[in-house]
Design a binder for these strands. Structure first.
Lengths: 110, 110
DNA sequence: ACCTAGCATCGTCGGGTGGCGATGAAGCAG
DNA sequence: CTGCTTCATCGCCACCCGACGATGCTAGGT
């Protein structure tokens, strides 16, 4: 029998990982390639401990991976294709949602 | 100019709306069609106030809409196609994530 | 008019979470 | 070895959030 509840929780956890602006910023930055914690720290303007915690959160969901390189850790996305598809579809959904009130819809759908 | 920060916050809010098992369950139930609050209440086993709050949350993100019908409110999904695409891609991402790297398990849930 | 059904909202409470600084381990430079 | 850098973890704090019950409103039934 299929564990709907379990899958639901896992899916909720995945979305939770993406439900924070800082983490989204981290993900978008990792799209560009591997980055160290200190790089993300400088880019986000957050404390190093905060960034590490965010990375741990993303790692728990399997979205990112850390590769040790000397004293540093190189972080990168795990399944960037699917992840970007999720983000892209979400943005499209936002575009559809963000229609200004009072603005009437034009009936040509592309 | 484009407010990246604002879009980020909106996207985070969208994912936040999907980051709760109860809300995911509501969405999946609304896929089947319109439903009243009391129906969802019975289906989820949650208090009516809780369900109303979840629906308000989903409504704030533009994911659902309420249509007044008598004393009741019929709730339905807004952009079910794109929303289902987001959920589907997320599940696919979970499938990829659930596999430990280096160890290819033969047991796939299904 | 009166009661019931359905719903949104408010107040509350316990747990979860993001933010920070401090600490300690691990690796590079001298 | 000493010192510096980088990072993960811990403790703390403020805030957010999901859960509930209670309240009040509206619509339909009698």
């Amino acid at each position: 029998m299929k564990q709907e509840t379990d899958g639901l929780t896992a899916e909720a956890a995945l979305f939770h990982a993406l439900s924070d602006p800082s983490r989204l910023l981290i993900v978008r930055h990792l799209v560009l390639g591997e980055h160290r914690v200190v790089d993300l720290t400088a880019h986000l303007g957050l404390a190093q401990s905060t960034v590490s915690k965010h990375l741990a959160c993303l790692k728990d969901c399997g979205l990112v991976t850390s590769r040790p390189e000397g004293r540093a850790s190189m972080w990168s996305l795990n399944h960037s294709d699917e992840l970007l598809e999720v983000l892209g579809t979400a943005e499209r959904l936002l575009d559809l949602t963000a229609v200004s009130p009072g603005h009437h819809y034009e009936d040509h759908h592309g």
